[in-house]
Design a binder for these strands. Sequence first.
DNA 1: TGCGGATCCCTTTTT
DNA 2: GGGATCCGCA
Length: 669
Amino acid sequence: MHAPSKPTLNGHEIGHGRLPIAYERVLNPSQLEAATFGQGPLLVIAGAGSGKTRTLIYRVARLVEQGTVPKRILLLSFTRKASEEMLRRAALLLDARCQEVSGGTFHSFANNVLRRFAAKIGYPHGFSIIDRADSEDLIHLIRKEISAAEDIRELPRKSTLASMFSRAVNKCRSLEDIIYEEYQHFGDQIDQIYQIWQLYGLRKKEHYFLDYDDLLVCCQQLLTSDPAVRERLISSYDYILVDEYQDTNKIQAEIVFLLAGEKGNIMVVGDDAQSIYAFRGADHKNIIDFPRRFPATHIIKLEENYRSLQPILDLSNQLIAGAAEKYSKCLYTRRGGGELPKLVSTIGENAQSIYVVREIGRLRSQGVPLDQIAVLFRASFHSFDLELELNRAAIPFVKVGGFKFTDSAHIKDVLAHIKILIAPQDRLSWYRCLLLVDKIGPQSAQRIFEAVRKREAGAVGLLSAPLKLKANPGLDRLKELIAAMDATPHLGRWGEMIFNYYLPILKALHDDHPRRQRDIEQLFYIMERYDRAEDFIADMVLEPPNTAMEDHLSVTEPAPDCLTLSTIHSAKGLEWNTVFIIWALEGRFPTHHALEQEEMLEEERRLMYVAATRAQRELHITCPTQIFDRASQTCLYEPSRFLEGISEEFLERSYFDPRNAFQKKAHFT
DNA sequence: TGCGGATCCCTTTTT
DNA sequence: GGGATCCGCA
């Protein structure tokens, strides 16, 4: 028997015009069962590359084909990009109705629900969503406020505080528990930390701020406390489909449960072996608990892999077999052939980069296009040296993951000027704008903000607020900008105004302003697609462009024939002909942060598994040795523990020295 | 009060 | 190499 064939058009699956889709011809029996499943709860355990997305697409098409109103299907997935892509493919398969399916991330779904019922959660005039950086800034202000000048150094820094709070919320634990379990060294400061947490909650209320976690919590609380709202939402959807269920946390699982209602037409798809978001509270036990919450659950397993050649699957199975928790699947393929995955060690980081560049050269000469090659790594800074080598070799690449476009100072600056107009109570954005003005520091910024707030006249209140300040040309320019923006309530016109105002500031602040200027132009290009500033800002917080700026923002078509550099987290769900995993070095991957805790190590292992299963035909793992690690003050030289025990039968080991090409290597010791 | 320079720290993954 | 903080000068 053959693997089911995929009819394709431009690489995408297509149906047969208006003819019924021949599900049984294009899906394997398990996929078919999932796609055509009727009513009731369904759990699909889908191994890597087993056609999970495909199955979901066909299920959406099937439901629509059978007459379900598209809007009444709710598809929750991990990123908006993923769900858009899914619906696009479903539309190709059936027809444009599929594009109308409701969907998005849990956070964007929660946002939509809360906007509709804002009054019920105490925000009759709406709310703004703050991202992680904003939330840290707010915590920072509180931290400075409450600490007597002498003990501020004793307190955890703002990012640590933010992590503590977020973990407590996402894991549904008390702050005390989190501190005692994961931050013992701050046990003495627990009272102050708790006080900061409470003030943080208060400040958010005062400013109508919701952070990422609040979106989920408020949504869950709304569903729990208001049966009428819950009924309305339940009756809005006939079917709920959740992708990547292994990466949901307790609150998200609860939301799913609350939405399912009596009908329980809920399908979740996931793979416990690919759970890599425990650090933000994801609980892969949600998958295991699902049949308990929905006793009538039907379970389907997808184990046949259509992505990778057998040697890659063998290695992946070996990787996950070493896990403490046993996983109940084993991937197999019917496609033969393929070479053993390689583990290549080099002396130093640069030799690793040179190896990757040379291999990419070889692949290209063999006709593999660059966009079929990816380099994956644990943390985004791991690719710095490689990026230099790629530039030297004139190999174009896009980098995904890590620092985001919206994290950079100049983009945040621009967004802050929009935010003060649409949310004049937003203290953080006011501070940000005011501190950019010459001669204005924290003290003046605070006074000005309070004066504007008292006016209760929106951002233009700045023009009439009584400010006891000396003449300040910079501030006058800001006033002019605000007046002009206020007089022109068209988002499309704001870009130019802010640009003209901000450009001199940008030039004075950053010596690399040409690059930053291009970023800002890109931002305005994205902005043009929006009518309402509120929608634009909300999207920038909830779904910021994921590529790390430069010229290839995802606004235009994906850059043609370009190598992909990506964190493993951002590579989830994707696949390439050839994959390089770099820095498979003990202390880097697994990261030294994980070495002490068994659970974190297990997550690192799953991460390695996710990385390896991205490859279709070739897999190269590299391990630079003799790396001095500043954090531990030691020299790192051991390959990742996940590879150590794997026999020669599954992994070919060699040593690469750029000066005299390759040397085979029998064994590591 | 603002600001530039010196010194200390730590360096992950994402909505 | 970049933040956060401190300190001294204008």
